[in-house]
Nucleic acid binder design. Structure first.
Lengths: 122, 122
DNA sequence: TCAGTTCAGAACCGATCGGTTGAATAAAGA
DNA sequence: TCTTTATTCAACCGATCGGTTCTGAACTGA
């Protein structure tokens, strides 16, 4: 029912401010559902659902401590996401402006020029 | 209708393999919708919609060249996303294993121990 | 002017999402 | 055993998502 690839699930899990806040909380140490729910005007069940999304993305692992089911951060998927983004790092450093010039050229050129190969190195 | 914060929109836009593939294509230079659609078994309209999502996340900007509306990568939001992930970098380096030990402790401790402070430095 | 190409807009569809409520489960403690 | 606490499950809701098809607009070129 959720055949999405790992990276998609990671990004999808991060695409919600509530879940990001929960991760931020977990960065300070494990927490129970109640603790995680505390800052939010939201039912426990809703928090539990968010937690299950994070779990599905392997971003948190759960334990068991009496009635509590403490959640703990697992940053591995964040590393993978960061690595993916890293491939684009070059675009917000040197070549960024060069690429802008590229589009300017393009908007008054023909479609044959749509792929002008990388002239990044200048 | 889409009051989501910037980071959420960025991650949401990245949470789809089709859109990530489109960004990868755009990393090699601007492209028309037709060019972007070519690798996918999908209607132009669908690709156009994906493009609009990327546009909404400020990940691509559009130009105009005759009938063509070339799309071009804008990596700025990727930089912001990368910066957000960067805050967690520490969790997949030194302290990662220490944190694992932490949870082991926790699963047989009381909820009062749920926040055991960082013992990252071995 | 007319036809062809490229693209976007609108309406629609089933599936998923983020939330609710209310009942069920699991463990602790009296 | 019975109650309390912590959490999940199940059903439901409206909104959004990813895709379709059909229609129309923008632009080129004969």
């Amino acid at each position: 029912m959720a055949p999405a690839d790992t990276l998609s699930r990671t990004f999808a899990a991060l695409a919600d401010p509530t879940r990001r806040a929960m991760l931020a909380r977990l960065a300070r140490g494990p927490a129970s559902v109640g603790e995680l729910a505390e800052p939010f005007d939201m039912s426990f069940a809703a928090v539990s659902k968010h937690l299950r999304v994070l779990e599905g993305a392997r971003l948190v692992t759960r334990g068991r401590d009496a009635q509590y089911r403490p959640a703990m951060l697992n940053a591995r998927p964040l590393q993978d996401a960061s690595a993916w983004l890293g491939d684009y790092r070059v675009f917000w450093t040197e070549s960024f402006d060069a690429l802008g010039v590229l589009l300017d050229d393009l908007t008054e050129a023909g479609p044959d020029d749509l792929r002008p190969d990388d002239k990044k190195e200048t």
